[in-house]
């Protein structure tokens, strides 16, 4: 399989602090790839560099073979690289259907269309409604986002990303703050995504990571420590020392 997303010697420095240190990463098409590491290891920084939220101090990002290092966020989204956020980034005053329709409209290139009302763009609305159906969100379609429980808001966070039809989906702790039973449902939803969608996952829950991922990269202090299949990572002594120690021994 070929790499769909790749970084070469990617670095990011904030003043004297190196948040990302020469990371060369290769994500294969269709992979379920987890990024793990202790707090402050630079996982979210890496996501921010991949998506263009931050400009790297050095190094390059390649998406499907093209150098996208200097493309803006929205341009990378148009090329199929879509993320979710660790802290919900939703449209609080819109209904769930409206906000997903917004995302669908942007993907369909309707964002500049100003003459016909949203309601007349039936294809976009139908697609949004179908997506809500697959995510079991139909019952709240006409509810204002802000009035929903946190677990369901977390689902909308993912729905907005899926509406952009990602080829590579970066999930930054999708289940953070979600009660256990709901997080199981959330991961079941993620697991059901077709293999055409490559998934890069940041997650702290090791049970989930080892069940879900077919490859794991371990970041420590902004640098890539090692990467391998879950079975090997679980036995890696260095990984256990820096990160898994308490989780596995304790």
């Amino acid at each position: 399989m070929s790499a769909v997303l790749e970084t070469r010697d990617l670095s990011k420095q904030f003043g004297g602090f190196i948040a990302c240190n020469n990371v060369s990463l290769s994500i294969e098409a269709g992979a379920r790839h987890a990024l793990i590491g202790p707090n402050g290891a630079g996982k979210t920084t890496l996501i921010n560099l991949l998506t263009g939220f931050l400009e790297p101090s050095a190094g390059d990002v390649f998406l499907k073979g093209d150098n996208v290092t200097h493309l803006a966020q929205h341009q990378r989204v148009k090329r199929g690289l879509v993320r979710t956020f660790q802290i919900n980034q939703l449209f609080a005053e819109m209904t769930v259907l409206e906000s997903v329709t917004l995302s669908v409209c942007e993907r369909l290139g309707l964002g500049w269309s100003w003459w016909k009302p949203v309601g007349a763009h039936t294809a976009a609305i139908d697609e949004a409604a179908e997506l809500l159906a697959t995510l079991h969100l139909l019952d709240v379609a006409h509810t204002q986002t802000r009035s929903l429980a946190y677990g369901r808001q977390r689902m909308i966070e993912i729905a907005l990303a899926l509406a952009a039809k990602p080829q590579v989906l970066l999930l930054d702790e999708p289940a953070a703050g979600v009660p256990t039973d709901e997080s199981r449902e959330l991961f079941a939803t993620i697991a059901r995504l077709p293999r055409e969608v490559t998934i890069v996952l940041i997650e702290h829950d090791m049970d989930l990571v080892f069940r879900f991922a077919d490859k794991i990269s371990v970041l420590v202090g902004g640098a890539l420590l090692t990467e391998d299949v879950p079975e090997v990572i679980a036995k890696d002594r260095r990984v256990r020392e820096v990160y898994l120690g308490e989780a596995l021994d304790g």
Partner: peptide, 15 residues
Amino acid sequence: RGIRQNVGRMPAIGA
């Protein structure tokens, strides 16, 4: 409206 309500999310959905 999306920009007013959450300017940070808009680029992440391609706007």
